[in-house]
Amino acid sequence: MKLYWLVIWAGTPFLNPVTADCNITSQTVACEESGKNLFNISLNLFQNITKLSLKNNNITLEDHDKEILGCFINLTELHLNENNITVLNNNSFYNLKKLTTLDISNNRISTVHKAAFAGLNQLSVLNLSYNMIAQLDSDTFTSLENLSVLNLQHNFLKYFHIKSSFRLIKIVLAENPWICSCDLLDLHIWLTASNVILENENNTRCTLPNMEKISIKMAPIQPADCKIKKTPLENTSTPAVNLRSSALTVLTLNNITGNNGTHAELPLVGKSWTFLAGVLGFVLGTTFLIFTAVKCPAWYHYLISYRHRRLEENDSEMFEQEFSADMSPSPSSTSSEEPTVIFKKVHAFGDEEDGFIEDKYIDIYVNEKH
Rank of each mutant, 00 (worst) to 15 (best):
G11W: 10
F14W: 04
V18Q: 03
N23L: 05
A30P: 02
E33W: 13
S34L: 08
S42T: 09
N48T: 06
S53G: 10
L54P: 11
N57Q: 02
L61R: 12
E62V: 07
K66N: 00
C71F: 02
F72K: 12
F72I: 11
I73Q: 15
H79I: 11
H79L: 11
N84K: 15
S92G: 09
N95D: 05
K114A: 08
L123I: 01
L126G: 07
L128W: 03
E145I: 07
S148L: 03
N151C: 01
N151I: 14
N155K: 00
Y159L: 04
K163M: 10
F166A: 00
V172H: 03
P177S: 07
C182L: 04
W190P: 04
N195H: 11
I216W: 02
M218G: 05
A224G: 05
K230T: 13
P232F: 15
T252S: 14
T252Q: 13
L253G: 10
N254T: 02
N255G: 08
N255K: 15
P267R: 01
T274E: 12
G281P: 00
L284Q: 00
T286W: 00
F288E: 06
A293I: 12
V294C: 15
V294W: 13
L303H: 14
S305C: 05
L311N: 03
N314M: 01
E317I: 04
M318S: 09
Q321D: 13
Q321C: 08
E322Q: 04
A325C: 05
S328W: 06
P331A: 05
S333I: 05
T334I: 05
V341W: 15
I342C: 08
I342Q: 13
F343N: 06
F349L: 13
E353H: 10
F356M: 14
D359W: 15
